[in-house]
Design a protein around this nucleic acid. Structure first.
Lengths: 258, 258
DNA sequence: CGCTGCTTTGAACAACTTCAACTTCTGTGG
DNA sequence: CCACAGAAGTTGAAGTTGTTCAAAGCAGCG
């Protein structure tokens, strides 16, 4: 895989940072797909489309043509109820896949907006499907990614259906921390890409509640919060709050930092 | 199973009732797949596996090998939080696809249980993937079904995140009514396959609240409820409650009751 | 026929929201 | 570089919605 042909293949074969964790490219990690396949894939991708903060990648109801991988920055997707209010469905960080909910109806089921300056790679879906016909690993990878999305949604439903406000915020923070770490950033100290309002919306709470929770978590020594900058001071306790299995057991050992 | 190959094909080519609406078979409606492909598909399916009320089809964490289509009856799937309580993720009626959330991790992300006497068709996933490699329409159909699941999940998140108790129950009833109609049953009068507890769990409410809502909806003339038997008396009003677009318009100017 | 589990109803309570006021950031133009 | 305006965030107090606890009514089933 190291022997590369030139052109835009370079982006993918020697990934600068985000590509390394790109959902679609994980196939090469698994050795299921050979270099020519990656070249084919790369040839149909529109790389690093830049997005300003607040810019929409697509709107709910628009015809579905492509899926996207976040290359840098962060995005949110949301659905609108008929009386106008939004429900944020998910946040996406670099390497994560956005926009797969349009396959069934042929139009996007949600809107996607950049949370800050961001860039995405656009993958025309029809071409991807054609390609998947020839590359066995790719088909599996596509199903995998959609399955992952479903899994994530199920987790969110558990959060919205059963968890208290404390548990919801703790769960979100841990999820973000884990995903930052997956990208090679610190899981202990990070910058929230979204506003309090967005967090509240996603968690099904009022933004005042979220604000109060941050203050309380800080008072309790769980976090140090300074605007959007968050530092996790007591991971073990945060995990207990979020309901992570076995989180209580570890605290005896002076709070192992996973 | 091996000796029944001929009959299997017949089941699918001349579907008795549920098969007509089977998520996987919708490809033939669209003319994308020819009869031989359906025969291939049918050959790998284990047809009409019977399930007693309360029987589990699979448990969360079990290795993922197959997906299932409900042939008759109804199912629920749920995830468990670490402190033990369940969140019902979805209800499935005849023709609907269960169990696609296991592709990514290789183990089921939720448990599936029959709500009453039910039967399902089991489709080994690996074989299906292989088949999809040869049948273009099938690949698309698989992606479609998963995308549909994601869409449904997004709707549920909106429900759990933003809707009031009234809106939640109204939404569920309308969803069930629509799906019963899709199967050729009455959308106005039907039998709820699940308990009040299950409804409450799914809607993120206490079961007492659901009970009170049913009573109030009946008092308000929206429904006639007798245990699990439900008759919708004022569909328009129920749609307004659930927030269906344009539902107010249909009732005429008089309909601005909310 | 008398369980046992499901459902309904009432009353007190808790969690979260709403409303309102205030503070802190951020970006823009002088 | 500072001043200012608007947005975002914080905090308090009152208000709602839905929960919890408790008890009674029903239905299906051995």
């Amino acid at each position: 895989m190291a022997e590369t042909t030139h052109r835009n293949v370079i982006d993918l074969v020697a990934p600068p940072h985000a590509c390394r964790h790109c959902g679609l490219l994980q196939l090469c990690d698994h050795g299921q797909v050979t270099t020519p396949a990656i070249e084919q894939l790369s040839a149909i991708v529109r790389h690093r489309v830049p997005l300003a903060r607040g810019a929409a990648l697509f709107h709910e109801g628009e015809p579905f043509r492509s899926i996207y991988v976040v290359f840098s920055g962060a995005m949110k997707t949301f659905t609108c109820s008929y009386d106008g209010d939004e429900q944020i469905v998910a946040f996406y960080l670099a390497g994560e896949l956005v926009g797969v909910d349009g396959v069934h109806t042929g139009s996007h089921g949600s809107s996607a907006v950049a949370l800050d300056r961001a860039s995405v790679c656009e993958i025309p879906f029809e071409k991807l499907e054609t390609l998947a016909q020839d590359i066995p690993g790719l088909l599996h990878q596509m199903l995998c990614m959609m399955s992952k999305e479903i899994l994530q949604d199920e987790e969110t439903m558990l959060l919205l259906g059963k968890k208290t406000a404390d548990e919801r915020l703790a769960s979100l923070l841990l999820s973000l921390a884990r995903r930052f770490r997956e990208q090679g950033y610190s899981a202990q100290e990070f910058h929230l890409p979204m506003s309090r309002d967005d967090i509240a919306n996603y968690l099904g709470l009022a933004h005042e509640t979220v604000s109060r929770l941050f203050s309380r978590f800080q008072r309790q020594g769980l976090l140090t919060v300074r605007g959007k900058h968050v530092c996790v001071n007591n991971l073990a306790q945060l995990e207990i709050l979020a309901g992570v299995p076995g989180a209580g057991a570890k605290t005896g050992r002076a709070g192992q930092i996973i």
